[in-house]
Nucleic acid binder design. Sequence first.
DNA 1: TATGAATGAGAATTCATTCAT
DNA 2: TATGAATGAATTCTCATTCAT
Lengths: 198, 198, 198, 198
Amino acid sequence: MATEKLDTATRREQIAEAALALISEKGMQGLAIASLARRVGLVNSALYRHFNGKDEVLDAMLDLIGDRLMANVKAVRRESARPLDQLRQLLMRHIRLIRENQALPRIVFSEEIYSGKPERRTKLFNIISRYLTNVSDIFSEGQKNGTIRSDTDPLVLAVMFLGLIQPAAILWHLSNNKFDVTKHAEKAWGIFADGLSR
Amino acid sequence: MATEKLDTATRREQIAEAALALISEKGMQGLAIASLARRVGLVNSALYRHFNGKDEVLDAMLDLIGDRLMANVKAVRRESARPLDQLRQLLMRHIRLIRENQALPRIVFSEEIYSGKPERRTKLFNIISRYLTNVSDIFSEGQKNGTIRSDTDPLVLAVMFLGLIQPAAILWHLSNNKFDVTKHAEKAWGIFADGLSR
Amino acid sequence: MATEKLDTATRREQIAEAALALISEKGMQGLAIASLARRVGLVNSALYRHFNGKDEVLDAMLDLIGDRLMANVKAVRRESARPLDQLRQLLMRHIRLIRENQALPRIVFSEEIYSGKPERRTKLFNIISRYLTNVSDIFSEGQKNGTIRSDTDPLVLAVMFLGLIQPAAILWHLSNNKFDVTKHAEKAWGIFADGLSR
Amino acid sequence: MATEKLDTATRREQIAEAALALISEKGMQGLAIASLARRVGLVNSALYRHFNGKDEVLDAMLDLIGDRLMANVKAVRRESARPLDQLRQLLMRHIRLIRENQALPRIVFSEEIYSGKPERRTKLFNIISRYLTNVSDIFSEGQKNGTIRSDTDPLVLAVMFLGLIQPAAILWHLSNNKFDVTKHAEKAWGIFADGLSR
DNA sequence: TATGAATGAGAATTCATTCAT
DNA sequence: TATGAATGAATTCTCATTCAT
């Protein structure tokens, strides 16, 4: 009715963000086209002017996630010079990202992401791979400057890095946010770092 | 039509197993009562003789998962005497479990599991907690006999233990089973074990 | 399991009574074969040994109702000699019958009675007609002995007689049993009786 | 396919009317969302754009009934000045209403109407109560101007008034429309009116 | 660009009934 | 006679999507 008419570029952004928020709040099930449209002040069918269908919305949302992950990497690269410090900060940023955006783990596992469109699975794989590559670059640097043991594949370390957070995120989620992810991550990082230096 | 008549106890088992398998193949979305029934050779409505509804099926399925996790723990406890060996073997068993049963990670994050029934979230939390407790018991033993550093909460170690597998499992899943979880787990375990001893 | 095996004649009675009771309590919707069977201590399918299907149960139930209506007529015929007294007592008995057995009005109006089987509609019509004939006989007697005006068709009077109760029964029903049927019937009878004598 | 698009206000009316008609023809059991939708030329799910569910349809239908009852009262109030004439005309209108709309008595007793929603029973009670109040107002007027005996509660008279039609309506219904309600009502009114004046 | 109406596919669930034991 | 398992049809409701305006 009183809905402002906005151009598609703007709407696409709005909608992708809304999708992310909606999933964070209600889970993948809550991501119905109707709710999504309503959230950006549109009606059901109006959404189709900007996206060709739900699939496209999901794709846009994945891109958004990729952007946020990369933004985190860039930020820690800027904020500190020493690889180990960068990693520690990235760890904390990642936790914050997940906490503020529970959609992330939900999406990663949700088969809505895959079902029907195998390309989307690939897309998500690429996003995560790119993140992992960037993380492993940091490890590599540490190996070069001698602060991290050199006898291990930095990609393995990058995957392990994710493993410092993930199960904790699940527990946080399942425990109705009672499990303290941050505290766990700090302790886990300590042990991991010990393994890193020898 | 020519469906054999089986008693409810048998059917419940069959159905819970089928649910697990179905999720592994098609994701939570594939878990429709109709598909489930068809899979065990029944018709839609026949399933309701054995379960009161989908909720009950999901509960039974969670129990099944819990059983399998605990069975793994018991097995490694039996097979080896040394905590570190037990853990390594548990790691491998866990990977096999997930590989054969992709349902596991999907279930954990799928809020379809919870929606409407918050008690089920708790149920799942309890299942995982119990597993973690058992794993941490192994760590404790290692600490007592001096093979594992004593300055760390064994529960933190148990959560980290899960972290050795989880992200790898995701990558395996996203890469269409190309990512080699086992190899990753071996390397990761090496590094983790180094951190454990000092 | 421990269900006693009874002969069909006994079971049929049991079941018809149970049907009546069930409808009184839960309405026509509550009359599911499953509930009915359970109520007489049988299992679903066992009921089919005694009845050929739900239709037959309904028929048996209608017969039961017919019996009760006729029993009331016979009773008041016996208890008193004067037609007007008989009618008044029948009114009270009818009310009691309905109160103890809310099934009656529900059945009369329920289309489950009609739908599918037009013969059942006829059957019910016959039952009510027989009741009406008997009631009109009483009016006739009153006309013969001069206590009731003779210028009216006794059948019309019999139908009016039913009308003294019916709307009150509905109100009683809709008001959660707050509306006082008996009191209404008494007053209504007074006015009706006035019309009867002149 | 070629279904014309109509606005919700129109559709709601159509649907409520259709519900009434459908019940008249097939009884409460025939009132399935699918049949209802088909009757107004819609498909199953389209109905949900206009009503939130079956409950809402039933509510709208009850309102429609209330409206019709009150419309009748208003009409006879307008058409004649003398209470007794008004009542006689209302009687005839009521009969016509029921004949054209057999749904009415069926609805009153069908507990499908209430089940799950006790408020709807109250709603129906209120509708009927309002009708009765209006009818009793006519009786009151008659008492005031001396054409109706004053020694009786006008509400009792109003309930009796309904009783002049109801059982006849049932017989009409059960006899496959052979029983002549109008003729009965005329005779019954005569006797009732006699009772009214003394 | 945005709306409101309509569609069609599919989901969970209920229930009368059949059948082998 | 009674049971437990299985069936098939029906029912309400949800949701992504299309289409005319």
